[in-house]
């Protein structure tokens, strides 16, 4: 399934620019993860793509349907959990999912079975008849996800579905999403980079309303200057290697960023001196810092102090 935008721009109230000439094109089944700092324009993009908000200029297509001109047709194919959406406290989980399905046009009968299936697939079957206000934060988010995946929509938008959840609940959500992504396109925004790295089949980095880059994690990594990280469990090391970046994280760890060959040049020194270390590929967090950090400064290639 395809999403394409051309020159997509959103300016709120004639003064707040949220998206700036965004042009991209992705074609996949699975999870398309949109990352960016708070205020980068993720929600604005989701709301335009899901026909909730009109763009100021530019075009956007979801599954080859224009989000403005073909909105009615597109609405049959998408389902959205908006950022900060919450289940209505006076309903039960079963009533929540069921009413959403009925709003989509399912009969009262049909909606019951589908709702029960969806609740079961998110592990909420024992809570069907509890009032939503009694659910935990993680259960509420799972319920919102159950609501949209109960529908027939092949394209699902989830705007920061895990923000604010504890680590265990987030990991449960990851497991659920990677199971549900088969046969669907899930557009997932997050500011947890680990989440995008684990789940995203394709990742888009937004920075201040502009496209920083888009691709699989390996593609993104292959484009940065320092694709490897050497983690040294000491702050007392003496490294004289050109073309690497050294960053003391704490008095227990030093990070060295570089290319594979530069990093491996340092290994004999560490082994000889019996200093503990690990070598890793740059995480999405490292990649993100390099992309978004570069934007802050002047010349891309000169900038070193990210």
């Amino acid at each position: 399934m395809r999403i394409a935008t051309h020159g997509l721009t959103k300016i709120y109230d004639k003064k707040y620019q949220a998206l700036d000439q965004l042009t991209f094109n992705v074609d996949l089944n699975g999870i398309f993860s949109v990352i960016g700092r708070n205020g980068a324009g993720k929600t604005t993009l989701i709301r335009i793509l899901s026909t909730e908000l009109l763009p100021t200029s530019g075009t956007a297509f979801v599954n080859n349907l224009d989000v403005v001109k073909d909105a009615t047709a597109l609405r049959n194919e998408i389902a959205v959990v908006p950022q900060e959406a919450r289940p209505l406290p006076w309903l039960t989980p079963l009533q929540t999912v069921r009413s959403y399905l009925m709003w989509r046009g399912y009969s009262y009968r049909e909606s019951k079975e589908r709702s029960k299936d969806a609740l079961r697939s998110l592990g909420l079957e024992n809570l069907e008849k509890v009032k939503n206000r009694k659910l935990s934060g993680g259960q509420k988010r799972k319920l919102m996800v159950a609501t949209v995946i109960a529908s027939e929509a092949p394209i699902i938008f989830l705007d920061e579905p895990t923000t604010g959840l504890d680590y265990v609940s987030r990991k449960e959500m990851w497991e659920i999403l990677s199971r549900l992504k088969k046969d669907r396109l899930i557009i997932l925004t997050t500011h947890y980079l680990e989440e995008a790295e684990i789940l995203g089949d394709r990742i888009m980095i937004l920075d201040k309303g502009k496209l920083a880059d888009i691709g699989s994690i390996d593609e993104l990594r292959s484009k940065i200057k320092f694709p490897y990280v050497l983690r040294i469990m000491s702050d007392n090391v003496d490294i004289n290697e050109d073309g690497v970046e050294i960053k003391r994280v704490s008095n227990r760890q030093t990070l060295v960023y570089g290319t594979a060959s530069k990093i491996y040049n340092l290994v004999p020194y560490l082994v000889t001196n019996k200093i503990k270390f690990t070598v890793e590929q740059a995480s999405l967090g490292n990649i993100f810092e390099q992309y978004v950090g570069e934007e802050d400064g002047g010349d891309k290639n000169e900038k070193e102090d990210w």
Binding site: T51, R75, N76, V80, V81, P82, A85, R86, W103, R104
Partner: peptide, 12 residues
């Protein structure tokens, strides 16, 4: 509740 966004983007 952000319910209206869910409705606007649905076939209703």
């Amino acid at each position: 509740m952000r319910l209206q966004d869910m409705i606007v983007s649905s076939p209703t």
